[in-house]
Structures are given as C-alpha cells and as structure tokens.
C-alpha cells in the first residue's frame, strides 16, 4: 500500500524537522527546520488528496506554500533586525523576554 509509505515518510520528515528545531541553536537553521515541517505536512495533504481523489488538498498546499513564503520573509527580517541589534543569531542568547 503506497499511501502508508508516503505517510510514514511524511511523519519521518516532520520528526526530523522537529528534532532540528530542538537541537539547533542557529535561528536561520531553526527556520529551515520549520520549513521542512511545513513540507512534511504538504506531503500528507497531497497523499490524502491522491488517495481520496479530492483536490482540496492541492488548494490547501497552495495556501501553505503562500503562508510559508510570508513566514520566511518576516522571519528572516526578524533575524536581520536581531543580528543588527544583538550581533547574534543564537536563539539561546536572545532571552530578554524570558522573564
């Protein structure tokens, strides 16, 4: 059954992305891991769309790609502003709002 394989691959990619968010401290790499997780979700959408023969999943992936583009633009602007102010992209060193 091909659908199970696609879903397992999607889960594996999502877990790798989540682990990356947890173990990496460079904010740019953390954002890349978030993009990887969005892509894993897209793979699930496409798999279910193909299985159910319903193109709603394609429309959803379209929206997810648009949101990912917006997120990357704003997030990278935040990284640039952070680097300009704090001279670092390490997420552990930016903790002034931690309380």
């Amino acid at each position: 059954m091909m659908m199970n394989n696609y879903l397992m691959l999607s889960a594996a990619l999502f877990v790798i992305g989540a682990v990356g968010v947890l173990i990496r401290r460079n904010m740019i790499v953390v954002m890349m891991c978030i993009e990887l997780m969005l892509n894993a979700a897209n793979l699930s959408f496409i798999t279910f769309a193909n299985y159910r023969h319903d193109m709603t999943g394609h429309a959803f992936v379209f929206m997810v790609i648009a949101v990912a583009a917006a997120e990357a633009a704003v997030g990278l602007a935040v990284v640039l502003a952070m680097f300009r102010n704090r001279e670092t992209v390490n997420v552990d060193e930016v903790n002034s709002m931690k309380g």
Binding site: M63, A70, V74, L80
Partner: peptide
Amino acid sequence: PFEITSVLLLAALVGAVALV
C-alpha cells in the same frame, strides 16, 4: 482564502520592510 492570501503576502511584505 485565495484572495485573503494576497492580503497576507502584502502584510508580510510591509512587515519585512518595516522590520529591516
């Protein structure tokens, strides 16, 4: 949703420029 996406992209554009 498709048309709202255009508003989202515009907001992201303005936000990114404002932040930088």
